[in-house]
């Protein structure tokens, strides 16, 4: 479904990513792992089109999207939940969600999808008229995921959804992700939380200093001592 090949990227300075390749098949939940500064966020920013890669190619559903506009990529079905939640604080929860389904492709199905999001996160339904900025961290993460779901993604990319959340909310979020995946949604999950990610991902890719250090099924990664070493930067 998603084929990233030989991707090199950076932010003006030296390369943050070098020659990274990654495949995601339809229906999979793939974990993208690695320590801070390993290049995880850079990689998904390239996929979502927010950052232009320096070299390499990204293909989605057989089509090249390396140089496509972010809005175009969203319309094609890749939606990103950015790191640190990033809801629109001065808009209501409902407006946040409706904005998530604003592309021409998603607009006709907004009402159905809103119901689906409220089924997934009943808490959001209660908080509909509230300003998003007044929600707790966990609720904002639910909102960010719900907002992304409104776009009707074929591939959902999440950047550190567990960051700064209480263990209880982390459980809720990951239960929701598993549920979405069971319904057939393909998910690319960027996480630092190794055990949690490997517990719900089929496969994992470990990045280390901008390069793919390891890749394999969750079971092999969990058994491999090099996975932990990559985290500790050894």
């Amino acid at each position: 479904m998603l084929e990233v090949a030989g991707l090199t990227a950076g932010y003006g300075g030296p390369n943050v990513l070098e020659d990274v390749s990654l495949d995601v098949e339809a229906g999979e939940l793939v974990g993208l792992l690695g320590a801070n500064n390993a290049g995880k966020s850079t990689l998904i920013n390239c996929i979502s089109g927010v950052l232009r890669p320096r070299a390499g190619s990204i293909r989605f559903l057989g089509e090249d999207i390396t140089r496509a506009k972010p809005s175009d990529i969203v319309s094609r079905g890749i939606v990103q939940v950015p790191e640190g939640r990033q809801v629109f604080p001065r808009m209501s929860v409902l407006d946040n969600l409706l904005l998530g389904g604003t592309t021409a492709v998603a607009r006709p199905r907004r009402a159905d999808r809103l119901e689906q999001v409220f089924t997934l996160f009943p808490r959001l339904k209660e908080r509909r008229p509230q300003y998003a900025g007044t929600l707790s961290g966990g609720e904002q993460q639910m909102l960010a995921i719900g907002r992304a779901m409104m776009g009707g993604p074929k591939l959902l990319m999440l950047d550190e959804p567990s960051l700064g959340l209480s263990p209880l909310f982390v459980q809720t979020i990951f239960r929701a992700l598993r549920e979405l995946n069971a319904q057939g949604l393909t998910i690319l999950l960027v996480e630092q939380n190794l055990n949690l990610t490997l517990s719900c991902a089929v496969r994992g890719v470990v990045l280390e200093r901008g390069q793919v250090a390891l890749a394999g099924t969750s079971a092999t990664l969990r058994a491999d001592p090099r996975t932990r070493q990559a985290y500790l930067g050894l």
Binding site: S48, G49, V50, K69, P70, S71, V74, S75, V79, Q80, V81, P82, Q86, V87, F88, P89, R90, M91, L99, G100, T102, T103, A106, A144, R147, A148, M150, G151
Partner: peptide
């Protein structure tokens, strides 16, 4: 307003 509050998040949900 979405772009004002958060440009990256707005683009991530497909706002041009």
């Amino acid at each position: 307003r979405a772009l004002r509050d958060n440009e990256d998040a707005a683009q991530a949900i497909g706002i041009e």
